[in-house]
Amino acid sequence: MSAHPAAIEARHLDFYYGEHQVLFDVSLTVPERSVTALIGPSGCGKSTFLRTMNRMNDLIEGSRCQGEILVEGQNIMDPAVDVVLLRKHVGMVFQKSTPFPKSIFDNVAYGPRVAGEKNRAVLADLVESCLRKAALWEEVKDRLTTSAMSLSGGQQQRLCIARTLATDPRIILMDEPASALDPASTDRIENLIGELCANYTIVIVTHNMQQASRVSHQTAFFYKGKLIESGPTMKIFTHPSEKKTEDYITGRFG
């Protein structure tokens, strides 16, 4: 992993919701073009940490962040950083699939459109290639104009991934992308993650330890707002150096 340059580097990150501190001095390096899994019990701060990477936490009133997060070498906490541009490069897929009440085509074309792309042919090509990358094209190519709401849960989630790919991001953040899906759909999403990490840096939050061990190269274990341990997934799951990590992955708590 160390051969890859860092895509994201968090340095001494503290995060507060009002007076309540939820992240304590988190430092983590995410290598480029790899999958990093964030695991830990509910409320441990892993989702909050994920959302600091594209500054989605800005939407929460009274939240405050200290420390640095370097994305491609730039500190995104810098006031000069434009969150709109940041989010174009750091895409996000949510736990609950959130298709817009529009057609499948318009859902995928939304990101490029808000970024100013108007050319119908360019959009059509982009929509097709993104749907192909998300392994959804064959299922929807004949009904691109129908509502995205008519898709099944697993298809909706792959549509959300395609929609994210359409903005041509470098990094994709996934917040429990498969936790609401059936095993077959989960399998497809996991395979997709395996394919996408050849070109994209992926950070995934998951409650499912098997999933973390299956899809990720690097795993970071969070507990009560602190990053307890991080390292190659194999090592974390077989020889964790911290007692807490071992207790968690063997199911003794959490």
Binding site: N54, M56, L59, V84, L85, R87, K88, G91, M92, F94, K96, T98, F100, P101, Y110, G111, V114, A115, C160, R163, T164, T167
Partner: peptide, 23 residues
Amino acid sequence: VPGSIRVASLALGATRWQTIWRQ
């Protein structure tokens, strides 16, 4: 209008105005 639509739109790099006007 569900909040998830706003969040998803912002996460795709839409500005607040685009989110309000288009979604």
